[in-house]
Design a protein around this nucleic acid. Sequence first.
DNA 1: TTGAAAGCGCTAACAA
DNA 2: TTGTTAGCGCTTTCAA
Lengths: 331, 331
Amino acid sequence: MKTKTKRVTILEVAKDAGVSFSAVSKVLRNAYGVSDALRERVNTSIKKLGYSPNMAARGLRGRSFVIGVVFPDMRNPFLADIFTGISSALQRTPYQAVRGIAGHSSETDLTQAMIDMQMDGIILVSSGLSHEQLTDSGARIPLVIIGNRPPAPTTFDTVNNNDEQSGRLVIAHLAKQGAKRIAMLSLESPTAMRMRERGYTMGMEENGSAHFGTIMRAPKLSRGLYSGIEALLEKRPEAVFCWCDEVAFETISHARANGLRIPEDVAIVGHDNTAYCALDQNSLTSVDQSGEQIGLNATKLLIERLEGRRECEQILLQPRLVVRRSSTIHA
Amino acid sequence: MKTKTKRVTILEVAKDAGVSFSAVSKVLRNAYGVSDALRERVNTSIKKLGYSPNMAARGLRGRSFVIGVVFPDMRNPFLADIFTGISSALQRTPYQAVRGIAGHSSETDLTQAMIDMQMDGIILVSSGLSHEQLTDSGARIPLVIIGNRPPAPTTFDTVNNNDEQSGRLVIAHLAKQGAKRIAMLSLESPTAMRMRERGYTMGMEENGSAHFGTIMRAPKLSRGLYSGIEALLEKRPEAVFCWCDEVAFETISHARANGLRIPEDVAIVGHDNTAYCALDQNSLTSVDQSGEQIGLNATKLLIERLEGRRECEQILLQPRLVVRRSSTIHA
DNA sequence: TTGAAAGCGCTAACAA
DNA sequence: TTGTTAGCGCTTTCAA
């Protein structure tokens, strides 16, 4: 077995600086009662020896100053936006940098693993966990949930896009252009999707076309989606509202392959306004929910929690529609 | 400050099972000299109490059984493939699950942070670090580098796609269709790109069209790329070989926006064969370098290292070309 | 086959 | 203002 290279410890720094090792710890923690001279001396030694604190040891006693971020997968570029928000929010705080963590194991395992690694708090994105599981996790560690709206959280905070609003924005936009037969491609698990569907349904009702509505739900891993999209397109809807941009891109692909023109034969709208929407070959109308803002807010909430807040807080952000060619029926 | 919920420790398990706490530790580590009866009893208590070992404390003494994965960013879907490979490789080993970590801080900081968190080893993907920095890191912690081919590594292992081959495959394919003026859009930092460029150059020479070659390098964050692509397209090359699919998609977008037909006016080839290539609106010819295989191999190497191997190893994988409409000039 | 005891590197009372 | 002293939860000798 490989012998790990010996690290510089707080003890060696203390010896080098000619002080007690707890003095070094104090400097590290910005604790009270350290003279400038001592601080200076210690800092010099730290730099000289290239010391850096051992997080594991640190976490064993107090806080580790590391927060964990759990993503369902890495493939959705929208998640990257959220992470950007988290990163920049952390930069302005006295806290250590983020460590974003994604994995393939089950979310419960991952969350547990993070607790095991002494993370101070966790941000869970688009989790498929039940309300009960979330409540349980929240009782064990400070927790912020993104993209999931449980009825009445008691142990954790949430940050969400106003998904009803998303659905209504889309339907209003399409209805204004005269569309009636508007279908929706949704997703099975996260509760945020239920909200988006509700917005869609409300919109359809306001539009007086509820009768023409169809919601099709796909399982998370967009496998069986293919046949689903084909089947949906065969019904010749005037427009399709897709729960995320990736699915919308695929719908565009299928429509084209079947000789349908976009938006003349079928208008398509996505959600998240990810970078690819702007590409000429997609030119996809999409709902922008600012992942960066979401990440920013989630981090803010988590830090407040770590600092002592006990009551739960819920944040709801407003989306906006970015219109492009894919839904501009009458140009 | 929030008081953390008390965790179940090894001590409580010991009490519950009526054994010494070191006996529990032995069961946990599958150490020698534990009777089946004792093991049984301890395991029952572990399940009953829902105990799970504290990684930080464990890492303080021995191995943490956690390995870190550093990605340059989250936006390239090819990186997700690599992560898939790493995950599945770890599933078959006696080692703990992976924790993939991505961040915005500098790579050196991240690597350091991982060492601080007691990770046993690190996989660095598409790192921009210098050979010296890599050598230094490799001396401190078991290290595997992906997508970077330093001349003669002495402290770490590498797994790479045969990037020269990638370049040659593309040029051969285009040359066979009569193309001469083939441009390449490359990237500044990682050395893997230098290899890919070399393959391109060699291909152009074999094709007798070295004279017509142009390599344009973009900085990592595809910002200034836009104007670059425009400028490149204005020279009206017959084909453009892009260092990755994302850039190829953007090139397609610009070409279309400028009224160029693909592939009649300009053929386009990408690299990585990511999922979007197959979409009808892209139908992008691309080099497949199997991220999953790369991740798998990297993990294998890292585990070998952790188990004691001292000599460095280099693995080179062969790419293959997946032809689609974007480069089928004569259909 | 089991258990006792000594740390790993650090934080956070407490004493000096 | 500084240093002393307990641990945090675990691994790993070494005795019993």
